[in-house]
Write a protein that binds this DNA or RNA. Structure first.
Lengths: 234, 234
DNA sequence: CCAAAAGTGTTCGTTTTACACCCATGG
DNA sequence: CCATGGGTGTAAAACGAACACTTTTGG
């Protein structure tokens, strides 16, 4: 069957298809990006996003998950397509179209040893080294999409540990949007969505009084979402 | 040079890369989509989006513009990437990744004869025929992105003629969002952005009194955008 | 003169913003 | 006992939804 139909396309150009992952993490009140020090040609020694070519029988989405799993040991990660980079000249090596996808990971869960063994490291967004090809543009674009999304849906929870405090959540949003938020107003807004469950447990690492831990109530969120509820932060 | 570097990638799979265009137009208070009746295999006789394979030395974006120009005669059209469809099984014919892009066109400007000669026709969104492959999903996804975008930036102007009235603009937004809007409130909101210039000319085709024509002030818009101004419709 | 669409104004309730204030507690 | 961050309350301003009202003009 495949061979039969394939015949329609025989005179059509073929090219490499890659996927590059913009992997965001959040640690110590800072947004971090996972980047990769290339140990082989091309661009040996340069910094790049983690990525891979897509195999003939592999979904593009799957390729991204495969790469991230190989490097961090993590599975079941939040992934979303960013955009596709298809300029003819973008990779001088060969014609190669790259589908960029961004991931949000809980930085406390990944396998640090495995990651470093593979040549990947976390960098603060503000102090990224130069990146290979158009990878810096990919980061910019993904950040833009992340910000847009974060404004209208509670996407940020993907970046925090299972249980977190409201001040932690606030500092994540401050990192994403690059501006200070009012603690009182932020708390009221977030709680008004009623998608957080308070635990009977406090985090005392950043104050004597301690801040209650919360968990994200995925079920209630889905319900509200389906009922057309609007989650507009800020 | 190319041949030299190409050697790094010799063992990497290659595949077809296509682009499909979701072409929106606005006419008689209705959102319309340009679709294409296939005259050759595969899927001969079926309805599909207009699209093409990307050539080896051609930017992906360029391929979309080329297709649209060939079919409608239009150039300089608003284009934006939607998303990329990369499932291994999406086209039984052969492995083929498709980058979907949507276009907004002023329906009064295209070349009707050329378009029909090429087998393409405008359909109301509500009465689309069945589309081949995953093209229907592409339409759904593009609509979703269009709606999101339209909410936060004055994208709709791409779909109207150079000069338009506020009631016309309103009916466009009603078509995009599929709901009635209050004329008074809509007008105030739009005018508050101060990105419309009123002409000393009226359209009397839909009322005795006539409605003033406006043009979109692109320069002021860009300025406000850069200064961080928020355009939130609705 | 009147129907009908264009355009303006007013009201009222909600949301946002800024900020004052109370709480809990380890050092 | 007090500095510090957690958490609550509140008043003023801004905004949005609903709707009444005025304007214009061809038939």
């Amino acid at each position: 069957m495949i061979n039969n139909q394939e015949s329609y396309y025989t005179d059509v150009d073929k090219m490499h298809v890659a996927t590059d992952c913009i992997v965001f993490g959040f640690h110590q009140d800072e947004l971090k990006l996972l980047i990769f020090n290339r140990r082989v040609q091309p661009h040996k020694g340069g910094w790049s996003l983690i990525g891979s070519f897509v195999k003939l029988n592999e979904d593009v989405d799957h390729a991204a998950k495969r790469v991230l799993r190989d490097i961090t040991g993590l599975d079941n990660v939040f992934f979303e397509q960013s955009r596709t980079y298809g300029n003819a000249e973008r990779d001088m090596g060969a014609r190669c179209v790259s589908v960029a996808q961004f991931a949000l990971i809980r930085i406390d869960e990944y396998d640090e040893e495995l990651t470093e063994m593979r040549g990947a490291f976390w960098y603060r967004l503000e102090e990224l080294p130069e990146l290979v090809l158009d990878h810096y543009q990919m980061v910019i674009d993904a950040l833009d999409i992340l910000r847009r999304k974060a404004k209208h849906q509670p996407i940020g929870f993907e970046l925090l540990p299972e249980k977190f405090t409201i001040p932690q959540l606030q500092s994540l949003y401050e990192a994403i949007f690059q501006r200070k938020l009012d603690p009182g107003n932020f708390r009221k807004k977030i709680l008004s969505f009623k998608i957080l469950n308070r635990l009977n447990e406090k985090d005392r690492s950043s104050s004597k009084r301690g801040a209650f831990y919360y968990t994200f109530d995925h079920d209630t969120y889905e319900k509200l979402l389906k009922s057309g509820y609007n989650f507009d932060f800020l």
